[in-house]
């Protein structure tokens, strides 16, 4: 059996600690050469989600619908706080938020659960969080189809507009942001399993402090007490929470904006483009997060096989 003798001699030692630039260049090389591995892992993940349950991938559409029904009941019937076309208003935030929570929540175990693999095969561990993030993206795509379909049909297409085309743009920013966080969370969870629990609580808090059941426009009208209670700084922070920026953007392009009349009546205006300045700033922060996260992950990677 002829074997090409071009295999590079490798040299491993404890003496060298590669710097950040080396690690990141290495990460990019690894990912480029393992594209197929990532694709296979994504396929396996999507199929697993589809075959575990009777209704399979249909759950991805049913889940936000059921959640929406619950929130509409709670907010609309119990709290009497609904706005016109409340289901679309809620769904526009629930679908992307579900993507965010399942990406971050699922990422906590993504390295740890592959313990057997990591201890037996030498491969770039970076493919694990990345494949996980892409699989979640596939699920989100199902959800977006449902969301767009419903928006086009609701009230004779009252909310339908070309602004829906902004969804992929906002999704790219969200993907970068959540992947950046995933890199940190998945690496740290290997060392401290508690991280998974803490992350769960943080995500729940995020649900309430992000504009899902309410929106910042409320603060102009009857929700003015919110602004007063938090003070200008507090309100600014609330408004610039990355998840809030993302969710507000989705709602602007899908639902439109809530408007409070002087007489206390609530109406809505047609969908508008998202705040591009904010979105661009968030994208910049996300890219930075990705770079630092990659370095962080690569730095801890050599210890994974020993710790697990």
């Amino acid at each position: 059996m002829p074997i090409a003798n071009d295999a590079p001699a490798t040299y491993r030692t404890s003496a060298v600690r590669p710097g950040p630039a080396t690690l990141i260049a290495e990460a990019i090389r690894e990912l480029a050469s393992r594209r197929r591995l990532i694709a296979y892992l994504v396929r396996a993940d999507v199929r697993r989600k589809g075959t575990d349950t009777l209704l399979g991938n249909l759950w991805w559409a049913l889940d936000p619908l059921i959640a929406m029904a619950v929130y509409v009941f709670v907010m609309g019937v119990i709290f009497q706080r609904s706005v016109p076309d409340f289901p679309i208003y809620i769904l526009a935030a629930v679908v992307p938020f579900k993507w965010f929570t399942s990406s971050i929540g699922g990422s906590t175990g993504v390295v740890a659960k592959n313990e057997r693999l990591i201890k037996q095969i030498q491969f770039p561990k970076l493919v694990l969080p990345i494949a996980d993030a892409l699989a979640e993206l596939v699920s989100f795509a199902f959800g977006v189809l449902l969301l767009v379909g419903l928006t086009l049909l609701w009230a004779g297409g009252a909310h339908a507009s070309l602004m829906l085309l902004w969804i992929p743009v906002i999704a790219v920013v969200q993907l970068a942001f959540s992947l950046g966080i995933t890199l940190f969370v998945s690496a740290v969870t290997v060392f401290y399993r508690d991280v998974g629990i803490v992350v769960g609580h943080l995500l729940r808090m995020l649900f309430f402090i992000s504009p899902i059941l309410w929106s910042f426009e409320d603060a102009q009208g009857r929700g003015a007490s919110l602004k007063e209670g938090l003070g200008p700084t507090g309100f600014w922070i609330l408004e610039h929470n990355p998840v809030a920026i993302l969710l507000a953007s989705y709602r602007r392009v899908i639902y439109g904006q809530v408007q409070h009349g002087a007489d206390g009546g609530v109406t809505w205006s047609a969908p508008v483009a998202p705040d591009l300045g904010l979105l661009a700033a968030l994208f910049g922060v996300s890219l930075l997060l990705l770079v630092v996260g990659t370095w962080f992950f690569k730095r801890l990677e050599p210890a994974f096989a020993k710790i697990l």
Binding site: A7, Y11, T13, I118, Q120, I121, Q122, A305
Partner: peptide, 20 residues
């Protein structure tokens, strides 16, 4: 030797592709 864990001291060199 397989490169799955890193040495804490010393050096491992290989001349060729390692399969496990």
């Amino acid at each position: 030797l397989a490169g799955i864990i890193q040495p804490s001291a010393g050096v491992v060199q290989s001349n060729g592709h390692i399969s496990t």
